[in-house]
């Protein structure tokens, strides 16, 4: 039995289209005949390529979201933002220090933050963006790294910020500094890298290289599997 699809009205760059209810913005635009050359990647909410802004009929708010994750609603005004122009500071991680001035030295514009919270409201990952910028300003690298951990660099915060800050680059520097200089070192990783460098696994690898695809497949299927940890999902 074929049920009649319920259609909704959307406006893409000002032109009206009717598209089936329940589609994501990305699919709805494709349904309407647009083709993504830039501005789409994983289609699963991880890559940050599909930044989009929209308004709804009768609502003053400007919403910011990921096109691949947001379902269309009747009366949406849409446009895609395939790219955010942003300057990234140039640094050599090996040579810089992680102190309370590093972030503000490389990105002095973070001092312009007026705490308007627009970035936080814009973030599709629901991060405390304002808080990580503020942590960066006061030199709290660890906190900035922690708060920005799930950033997918979609650029929406930077497009909305009245202080013209490029949040995700600041955050990336914070995480790099944290990883290199501040986070406690993982001992088992160091040990394993050393073992690899010393050739502990060379013989075993060589042996495997000689095996046929069939044998490898069998080995793969019979491998030890670590118990799967519960992963947070998009809907959390």
């Amino acid at each position: 039995m074929q049920r009649k699809m319920k259609m909704v009205r959307i406006y893409i760059m000002g032109k009206e289209y009717r598209v089936p209810e329940g589609l994501t913005i990305m699919k709805a635009m494709e349904y309407a005949g647009y083709r993504y050359i830039r501005g789409a990647g994983c289609r699963a909410g991880f890559c940050g390529a599909c930044a989009t802004v929209y308004r709804k009929e009768g609502d003053y708010k400007l919403y910011a979201d990921l096109a691949c994750q947001t379902t269309v609603e009747d009366g949406m005004y849409l446009v895609q933002l395939p790219f955010t122009p942003a300057n990234k500071a140039i640094y050599d991680l090996e040579k810089i220090k992680a102190d309370d001035k590093t972030l503000v030295n490389f990105y002095p514009e973070i001092a312009r933050c007026v705490s308007c919270n627009t970035c936080t409201k814009a973030c599709p990952q629901e991060l405390d963006v304002m808080d990580y910028i503020q942590a960066s300003l006061r030199g709290d690298i660890a906190k900035a790294a922690e708060l920005s951990f799930d950033c997918i660099q979609c650029g929406l915060c930077a497009l909305r910020c009245p202080a013209e800050i490029v949040h995700y680059h600041v955050a990336q520097l914070a995480r790099r500094l944290y990883g290199k200089y501040l986070a406690p070192k993982a001992k088992h990783l160091e040990k394993r890298v050393k073992e690899i460098e010393e050739g502990k696994f060379d013989a075993e690898l060589k042996k495997m290289m000689k095996k046929s695809i069939e044998e490898l497949r069998k080995m793969y299927n019979a491998r030890d599997i670590e118990p799967e940890e519960e992963m947070p999902t998009e809907s959390d």
Binding site: C113, V114, S115, M130, Q134, L137, R138
Partner: peptide, 10 residues
């Protein structure tokens, strides 16, 4: 007692 959340006053 330091506030849990605070922002640069500008």
């Amino acid at each position: 007692k330091e506030l849990n959340k605070w922002y640069c006053c500008g």
